[in-house]
């Protein structure tokens, strides 16, 4: 096994008239949860969209399990095993929960029916709402659906963009616990973009801080991440 699942080197990207990422470097190790934080507008979501392939890479390289993927379109990166849970969840609103999961599973050639059962162990609420339209679910339920939709494709790397945003604190805690279980059960690596310090500290080992399209600080303590320490660190 390589000691990096995902390697990002000197990544630059942005929008037509607006460069955003100014050269981002980092590495994700197998089974690691790496948190990336930073204020609104620093380019965290742009980074995630560039990693999954929704925004083209202008410069730099992306290696997923040793393979260069920066020129692949999003659907090919998804099929290789990169899952994406976007900010704002973006479930398919006028499709049922079950159909949303069917779409998620389309990235794998031969879906295993057992996969769905395993996912319902993490998210039992989805099993109860299979035939409801995703658009009528609560924010927390939509968040769970968005994660489940990515998981049915059996990814090795999960990109999660602010999963705690706009949902109740206890649901956010549930999601944090599920992330830890996913890593335990599947060896999943996760890049977690998050501004919620408690969530970061309950799952991540390392935290990178972004500012103006760059990673400006790396917080990699020896022991556990402590919320108060991280808060103090971010306040500087």
């Amino acid at each position: 096994m390589p000691d990096s699942v995902f390697t990002v080197t000197d990544l630059k990207s942005g929008y037509d008239d607006k460069p955003v990422l100014q050269g981002v470097d980092f590495e994700v190790r197998p089974g690691e949860i790496l948190a990336i934080t930073g204020r609104n507008g620093v380019g965290k979501s742009t980074l995630m969209k560039t990693l999954i392939g929704l925004i083209p890479v202008k410069e730099g390289t992306l290696h997923f399990r040793g393979e260069a993927v920066q020129h692949l379109p999003a659907h090919k990166r998804a099929r290789l095993g990169i899952g994406y849970v976007p900010q704002g969840r973006d479930v398919f609103p006028r499709m049922t929960v079950s159909e949303n999961l069917t779409v998620g599973a389309m990235a794998v050639r031969r879906p295993d029916p057992g996969d769905l059962q395993r996912i319902f162990e993490y998210f039992p609420i989805l099993a109860e709402k299979l035939n409801q339209k995703a658009g009528v679910l609560s924010g927390g339920q939509q968040q769970q659906l968005a994660i489940a939709r990515a998981l049915v494709a059996r990814p090795q790397l999960l990109l999660m963009d602010e999963p705690s945003e706009g949902i109740q604190p206890n649901v956010a805690q549930d999601i944090a616990r599920i992330m830890l279980r996913l890593r335990q059960d599947m060896g999943l690596s996760i890049v977690l973009v998050e501004q919620n310090v408690d969530m970061i500290c309950s799952v991540a080992e390392r935290v990178y801080v972004m500012e103006k399209g760059r990673i400006v600080a790396k917080f990699e303590p020896e022991g556990r991440l402590e919320p108060d320490v991280l808060r103090g660190y971010l306040a500087i």
Binding site: G53, F92, P93
Partner: peptide, 13 residues
């Protein structure tokens, strides 16, 4: 409904 998430779910849109 959500073209970018269809693509990110592995569909060749």
């Amino acid at each position: 409904q959500v073209p970018h998430m269809a693509a990110a779910s592995g569909l060749d849109t």
